[in-house]
Write a protein that binds this DNA or RNA. Structure first.
Length: 328
DNA sequence: AACTGTAGCAACCGCATGAAC
DNA sequence: TGTTCATGCGGTTGCTACAGT
């Protein structure tokens, strides 16, 4: 049995919204809210639109305090950092940028920021190829990586090795994004994340529901970087090795835009769990495990998995387990 | 002026998830 | 416990504006 359509597609209008439609929708929501039912909303106000379309229009355009365009350097930096860390979880990235929508950030990334950064990387690659033509690292050949992973690797390399406008961001914890303080008071508000994209090239034997282990649960603020039970939960063995992908469970506040510019020094909670898919074969995982182990005892991090703590206790996780390559 | 290519963006589509029944 | 359905999310599409030829 197929899924029932959310609306009568024959009788709904598609395409750009007219100003009249915008006014109707905005006026109604301003007065009565959404009523918790987007599907019924368009009928209530006489709009021939799908409820999903209304929701999208509200969230991306009509909602108060929405900003469009004019991304600042700091916003660029945050987007870049989070993209490298968590990939294309645009809603999460948007949650760190007040007034920005996931759609806006996604468009901005795809049309401008990515080109800007990767374009610079290409330039540098051309220079590098002159001097490094003899070195051919098969392990990291593009053929064996997903495009997203490749992108993230390139961006990371660029951040590490090249002079870039964002290098200052890496070295400046003040610019690093933080998570919403509400988490501290309501940790039950969770947002479960699973990177579909990360698993696109998983083999058929991979079961993303099982064999996961929590790599990190980080209590931020005055707490130590890792708690005792987290240390125990790590328990990495050489048997684990992700030939490929990962997903993440980030527990964080979902829909409250935080004011990045005015965040105070209150206690904040950032819990991250990585769910690694384990197969046999390469040695890449063992390297990763080693890096993860380092993270439990040191604030110095390798490039493959990066977890840094700022002087204020803020924690960043950067994970490149998504990169898919086999060592030989 | 007409055509073509491209960038930017709004909106749509399909899937995953979780709540309600 | 299984089914249905609303919601949220990310990928994709399609339209418009603009630049280049």
């Amino acid at each position: 049995m197929g899924r029932a359509p959310c609306c009568d597609k024959a009788n709904v209008k598609k395409g750009p919204w007219s100003p009249e439609e915008d006014v109707k929708l905005k006026d109604y929501i301003d007065k009565y809210g959404t009523g918790g039912n987007w599907i019924a909303l368009p009928q209530k106000i006489g709009l021939k639109r799908c409820g999903k379309s209304c929701r999208l229009r509200w969230l991306n355009y009509l909602r108060p305090n929405i900003k469009h365009g004019g991304f600042s350097d700091e916003e660029d930096s945050i987007i870049l950092s989070l993209y490298i860390s968590i990939g294309s979880r645009w809603s999460i990235i948007a949650a760190q940028l007040p007034g920005r929508t996931d759609n806006d950030i996604k468009n901005y990334w795809n049309t401008k920021l990515k080109k800007k950064l990767l374009g610079r990387q290409k330039q540098m690659n051309r220079q590098d190829s002159i001097t490094d033509s003899n070195e051919n690292n098969n392990n990291k050949s593009p053929q064996n990586m997903s495009s997203s992973a490749m992108e993230r690797l390139q961006l990371h390399m660029q951040l590490q090795n090249l002079q870039s406008p964002f290098s200052s961001f890496y070295n400046n914890p003040i610019l690093w994004p933080k998570l919403h303080p509400l988490l501290q008071s309501n940790p039950d508000q969770t947002l479960k994340l699973a990177s579909q994209e990360s698993f696109h090239s998983l083999g058929p034997n991979v079961d993303r529901q099982n064999n996961h282990m929590k790599l990190a649960e980080i209590n931020n603020g005055v707490s130590p970087l890792y708690s005792e039970n987290v240390e125990q939960s790590l328990n990495p063995t050489q048997d684990f090795q992700p030939n490929f992908g990962f997903s993440q469970d980030l527990r964080l506040d979902n829909h409250h835009n935080m004011d990045l510019m005015n965040r105070g020094g209150s206690k904040e909670l950032f819990q991250v769990g990585n769910e690694f898919e384990l197969t046999n074969g390469s040695s890449w995982w063992s390297e990763e495990v080693e890096l993860e182990r380092k993270t439990t005892s040191s604030s110095s991090w390798g490039s493959a998995s990066v977890l840094d703590q700022t002087s204020e206790g803020m924690v960043m996780l950067q994970d490149y387990a998504q990169m898919s390559y086999h060592s030989v």
